[in-house]
């Protein structure tokens, strides 16, 4: 975490002031930039947007992109929704969990990898779908995920 994080957060917030849904957009950018949203960041967001810290915590806890814990260095998201279920997403998920030794929603103890559920990436005609470090993967297999 860079030591000037609070200033980065304030800069991000100020870029969003006046835009629609601004507190959410600012928090999304904070999470994407810094990896996770911390208490001090929420206080800054509350200050800039004239909200209570409780309101900001409420927003953060509602949206899954507004992470409060940074993902592992490698971030694997596996689609768990119906179209992917129909072509083996459950089996793929079980195999990936077994290979990594962590369950969905967990990060490896050494921070090397996190595994997360996602509900639809819109690649439903070519499942199962995954996203690895932001890169979408169609017709995912264990081999393709760890290539």
């Amino acid at each position: 975490m860079p030591s000037d994080a609070p200033q980065i957060v304030r800069d991000i917030c100020e870029r969003w002031v006046g835009r629609i849904g601004a507190p959410i957009s600012a928090l999304r950018e904070v999470a994407a930039t810094l990896g996770a949203i911390e208490q001090a960041h929420m206080e800054t967001v509350a200050d800039v947007f004239n909200l209570s810290v409780a309101e900001v915590r409420g927003i953060v806890s509602f949206y899954s992109d507004l992470r409060t814990e940074a993902p592992g260095r490698r971030h694997i998201r596996l689609c768990q929704a119906e179209a992917c279920q129909a072509v083996g997403a459950r089996e793929l998920t079980a195999a990936v969990q077994e290979k990594l030794g962590i369950a969905l929603g967990e990060t490896a103890a050494d921070g090397s990898v996190s595994l997360e559920a996602v509900y639809c990436l819109g690649l439903c005609a070519s499942g199962p779908s995954a996203m690895v470090d932001g890169r979408p993967l169609a017709r995912a297999t264990v081999r393709a995920l760890f290539a």
């Binding site: 835009r19 629609i20 849904g21 959410i24 957009s25 999304r28 949206y63 992109d65 507004l66 509900y119």
Partner: peptide, 10 residues
């Protein structure tokens, strides 16, 4: 016209 990006909520 403004574009708003969601934050992960079905």
């Amino acid at each position: 016209i403004e574009l708003f990006i969601g934050a992960g909520a079905y």
